Amino acid sequence: METVSGTILAGQSFDPVQGRVVIKEGQIERIEETATDSTDIILPAFVNAHTHLGDSVAKEAAVGLSLEEAVAPPDSLKHRRLAAADQAEFVAAMRRTLRFMQRTGTVSCLDFRESGLAGARALREAATGVPLNPFIFGSGPSSVLDVADGYGASGANDGEFTDQRAACRRREVPFAIHAGEPDATDIHPALDLEPDLLVHMVHAAEPHLQRVAAQSVPIAVCPRANTVLDVGTPPIRDLLDHTTVALGTDNVMLNPPSMFREMAYTIRQFDVTAREVLRMATTAGAQIAGLDCGILAPGRQAALIVLDGASDNLAGTTDPVEAVVRRATELDIKDVHM
Rank of each mutant, 00 (worst) to 15 (best):
N251H: 13
F260P: 08
S258M: 14
R261I: 12
M263I: 05
D271N: 13
V245P: 00
Y265H: 12
T266A: 09
V252Y: 04
S258G: 15
M259F: 10
S258H: 15
N251Y: 03
V272N: 09
A284F: 02
I267R: 10
F260A: 15
I267S: 11
F260M: 14
V245M: 08
M259C: 11
A274V: 07
M253Q: 03
E276K: 06
L278T: 00
T249G: 07
L278K: 00
V277L: 05
N255K: 12
A281Y: 00
A246V: 03
N255L: 13
M253W: 02
T266R: 02
T249Q: 08
R268G: 15
F260I: 13
P257R: 03
R261K: 14
E276Y: 10
L278N: 00
L254H: 03
R261F: 12
G248E: 07
V252K: 05
F270Q: 11
Y265D: 03
R268N: 15
M259I: 09
A284C: 08
A246Y: 00
G285A: 12
A264Y: 06
L254C: 11
G248T: 10
M280E: 07
T283N: 11
E276A: 12
T249M: 08
R268T: 11
R279Q: 13
A274I: 09
P256Y: 13
N251A: 11
L254R: 04
V245L: 07
A274K: 08
R261Q: 15
P257C: 09
T283E: 12
L278V: 01
R275M: 02
A274L: 08
D250W: 04
D271E: 14
T282Y: 02
D271R: 12
L247K: 08
A284Y: 01
L254Y: 04
N255Y: 06
F270E: 05
V252T: 12
M253P: 00
V245Q: 02
R275P: 00
S258R: 15
M259V: 10
M259P: 01
D250V: 07
G285Y: 03
T249L: 08
Y265M: 05
T283D: 10
G285L: 06
